[in-house]
Structure formats: structure tokens, C-alpha cells
Amino acid sequence: MKKAVKKLFGRFNGQDVYSYTFETDSGYRLTSMPYGATILDYITPDKNGKFANINLRFANLEDYLVKGPKFGASVGPVAGRIGEGTFELNGKTYHLPQNNKTNNMHSGLDGIHVALFETAEVDDHSVTFYTERADGFGGFPGPIKIWIRHSLAENGELTLTYEAAADQDTLFNPTNHAYFNLSGDQSRLIDDFQLTINAAGYYPLDENSLPAEEIDSRAGFVQELMKGASVGSIRQSDHPQILLAGGIDHPFALDRDQEVAAEYYDPESGRLLRVRTDRSCLIVYTANNYNDFTKSKGHPAHNGLALEAQAVPDAIHRAEKDQVILKAGQVMKTSTSYHATVKQ
């Protein structure tokens, strides 16, 4: 590994915000910043040895401060939707902002994606960001302490580790909102890229975009994704669930017997991205909707694929609730890795 590089990226609320770049001897690079514990660059080689950033991003900090798609940001403390923006824990009902229909989505507008984390530790292959949320902040019980570590291995594997502890029972179900375009060209659509998901099935969504109780493994598009299919062939299908979301925007229940959760491949560049995680669910999103600001920055819809590892959305209202309840005095830790290699 080469020596880590710290560089001023911008200013937020009167504070300097630095980026941290890590580079392997073979040329892989990871750049992250503490605003939102955000991945800026994941630079990897193609089959011709040409390096490019495969993570969608904005050019400067100011653009990240505008409400947008959360490119590369950490999401939490609870990623995904919480139905009706309420939940009950230890006999007490908590009310959260409803920022997605009647749901709380990604912990609302003041989730960790807009937090300026402290930089707790840096070495030549990783950075650890830290933040603390007060009791009641965003509607959640607390206080809760959160550490997020971004690390780059010599073989080019990017690993995200999340750790949290709280003084009272609360919820914790984080993820990262990176959008990957394996061509390295953010203007190119991802329709020709191939996606394989090692899933037991997917959770159909209702009219409020909340997942069904039971998984469906028989749907045609799910069967195709289990075998491997082009992103475009799936997102442009006439399946009612795909039409409902305007593309893929669904939770997939992972096959826990498989080491790799998903593979994402660009035949033209030869880049192959493998996802590994200890989480039970993978949210797959084909960048179906961008606001006008994001489009004005050169990002057409369907130019990236988000592969968000987490517990199933709305888990607190489901049998999976224990996956998202962080007990007082205990530490919850989870990790997900993305590894871009070349397939000739």
C-alpha cells in the first residue's frame, strides 16, 4: 500500500472537510470523506489495464449538500423504509418523520448521510469515521455511537464495517448508498451490464413500497436474475412489480449458503464486481429516478446500480425485528465488501 493522502475537499458549517485517499501498489484507489461517511472514488482497472472510478459521485462538496441520490453515502441509523413512520420498542411508541409516502425513509432528512463525522483513525489502508446521535434525534432512542470504517485491501477489495453502541435499546440497520457504473462513464446507462443475485427470492412490494411477509422465488425476473441477466432486460420488463417501481427497487433475500451475494459484470470493460456481506438482504436499485439537480450534473436515470446490503426494510414490524434492535450496552457490528476484478 502507498501512503494515505489527506486533501481539503470543502467546508461545511464552517469546518474544513478533508478527503482520504488510499492506493494499492497495483493502482486501485479508494477516496472517502467524513461528510456522510461517503465513498467518493473506487478506482479500478478494466481488461486493458485502464483505471477509472466506478462509483458515481459529484465533483465538489457543495453538490453533496443539495438533496440528491446520496451517492456513496452511509445511510442510517436505519436504512430503508419504516412503515407509517412509527415503531414500538419496550412498550413505547416512537414517531419518525414521514418523508416517503407515509413511511420514514433512510431515517429521514437528518439521517447519517448528512452528518459530518469525526475522523477517528487513519492508516495507510483505512479510515474510521465516528458520530454520536443524541437521544431523540431523528425520532430514535439513544444516544447511539456509530463507527464506520472504509478499508482498501492490497488486492483491491473495498470493505465497509459498521459498528454501534447505545445507552438504551434502539434500532440500527445501516447500509451504503454507492451507485456503481462499471464502465467508469457516468453518462452511460447500465442496461448492457449483467447482474446475478444469489437469492432465495425477493420481497414483493405493496402500494406503499413496503415488502411482503413472504419471499417470492417464482417470479420470472427473479429466476432470470438468479441465473444472470442484463440489467436492461429486467428493468424494462412488463412485470407489475417492475412497472410499480419504474425499474428494479426491491429487497432480495440472500441465499446464506452462498459466499457471494451478487455479481455485476460489464462485458465491454471486463470489470466484475462481487458483493459479500453478513447481512440477510440486498436492496437492488437501478437509479430509476433522479431530481433535476442531479440530472443537471450529468447523471441520466439508470446510470448506476445500488447494491445495498442490510436487513429487510421495515424489519421492526416483522419477524426479523431482532436483526435491527441494538440492545443497550451491547455492540452491533456488520460488514459488506465490494471487490472489482477483471474478467477477460
Rank of each mutant, 00 (worst) to 15 (best):
H106W: 04
D191I: 12
S187P: 12
D124V: 14
S126H: 03
R133I: 12
T86Y: 06
V127M: 02
P141Y: 09
I144E: 00
M105D: 01
Q98H: 08
A166C: 10
D192V: 10
R149W: 12
F193S: 08
V127P: 00
T131Y: 00
P141K: 01
F137G: 02
F137D: 01
S187E: 15
Q186I: 11
R133C: 10
E118P: 10
E88I: 13
P174M: 11
T131D: 03
R149Y: 12
T119K: 02
Y179D: 08
T86P: 07
V127W: 00
D123T: 13
A153C: 10
F87G: 02
H177A: 01
T196S: 07
L195D: 04
L109D: 03
W147L: 11
V122R: 07
S183Q: 12
D185Y: 11
G108Q: 01
I146W: 03
Q194V: 15
I148K: 00
L152K: 06
E132Q: 14
G184T: 13
I190T: 07
D123F: 12
F172C: 07
D123W: 11
L160A: 05
E132G: 13
G91N: 15
E118L: 07
V127R: 00
T196L: 10
S183Y: 09
K145R: 12
G138L: 02
G184R: 04
V114H: 04
T170Y: 08
K92M: 13
V127T: 03
G111K: 02
